Amino acid sequence: MLRKFKAVFLDVDGTLYRSREYEEHLLQSAVAVIAEMLGLARPEAFKRLMEVKEKVKTVSRSVEVLGLERGRFYDRLADVADVKKYIHPSAAVVGLLRNLRRKGVVIGLHTNSGRKLAGKVLECLGVDRQCYDFIVTSDDAEPKPDPSGYMLLLEKAGVNASDALYVGDRCDVELAPAKKLGMYTAAVYTDKCDYADYFLKSLSEIENFT
């Protein structure tokens, strides 16, 4: 019998939706913002971002290493990125989240993006405030893999780590920190992760744990 969880925490980008085109667009938009804020040509901005990201793993960390204020970067990125062109409503995601909440499961969303950009993504997906209890962004806590965001998820949900399932698509950046704090973890869209307790072929399988 599968374990039942009181809370489910979900990564947003790469988990609630999959879009290679948007990922590429977002990267190019990030490069444009970095170039603008540092006064660089885009090729140089891209080179610097990739060099730093190779070491620190995430764009959120990279922009700080490059000397930019994370909040200002994400606010500007939210203005530049054409989210509506790539992210579209998902009845499946909306239905899943609402079903989980009807069962009494606490739903928390977790993203390294700022609140403004995350809001645009969720709006395009059709995910409104009836679909989740709260969201933790890089405006609220240090970005993944820092544990502060995960601890805030648990605090807001009011549950013990062992009663929470964290769902994400990135092993080292997302699932490893959750696992180290005592949460159960589920990897989605991948079958390789040493920190995953479960492997999901689709998000709909989450209902089996509630």
Rank of each mutant, 00 (worst) to 15 (best):
R70Y: 06
R101E: 04
P89Y: 00
T111C: 03
L96R: 12
A118E: 00
V63W: 07
N99L: 09
S62G: 09
K103M: 14
G71S: 14
D75A: 08
E64I: 05
G95M: 11
R72P: 12
V65W: 06
D79K: 15
L122W: 00
L77F: 02
L66T: 02
K120G: 05
H110N: 10
E123R: 15
V59Y: 11
E123S: 14
G71K: 14
L100Q: 13
I87P: 02
A78L: 03
V93Y: 01
K120T: 07
A78M: 03
L96D: 09
A118N: 01
V65P: 10
V106K: 14
R72Y: 12
D79Y: 14
R115P: 06
V94A: 00
A92Y: 03
E123C: 12
D75Y: 08
L97H: 05
H88V: 14
R102W: 04
G119H: 01
N112Q: 10
V105L: 09
L100S: 13
K103G: 12
V121H: 01
V80N: 06
K103E: 14
R70T: 09
G104H: 04
S90E: 02
L66N: 01
K85C: 13
G67F: 04
E69G: 07
L97N: 05
D79E: 15
F73N: 09
A92H: 05
K103Q: 14
Y86D: 01
A81E: 13
L68R: 01
N99E: 09
I107P: 09
T111K: 03
V94F: 00
R101S: 07
V105N: 06
E64L: 03
K85G: 14
L66D: 02
N112A: 10
F73S: 10
K116R: 15
V121Q: 03
L77A: 03
K84E: 13
V80W: 09
H110G: 02
R98W: 06
G71L: 12
E69M: 05
L96C: 12
I107V: 15
S60K: 04
S60H: 10
E123W: 06
A91I: 11
L96S: 11
V59I: 15
A78Q: 03
P89K: 00
G67C: 07
L97G: 08
V94L: 00
V59P: 03
R72Q: 15
V80P: 06
S113F: 12
H110S: 07
R76Q: 12
E64A: 01
G119S: 04
A92L: 05
K120L: 13
A118T: 05
S60L: 03
R98D: 02
V106S: 14
L68V: 04
V59G: 01
S62H: 04
R98C: 10
A92V: 10
G67V: 08
A91Y: 08
R61N: 13
L96Y: 09
S60Q: 11
R72F: 13
L68S: 02
L109F: 08
V83C: 12
R72V: 15
R101T: 09
L117K: 01
G95A: 09
V106F: 14
V63T: 05
A92N: 04
L122E: 00
T111A: 02
R72A: 15
L117E: 00
S113A: 13
E64G: 02
A92K: 13
R102I: 07
A81C: 13
R76G: 13
V80H: 06
R72M: 14
P89G: 00
S113K: 15
L66G: 01
E64Q: 08
R101P: 07
V105T: 15
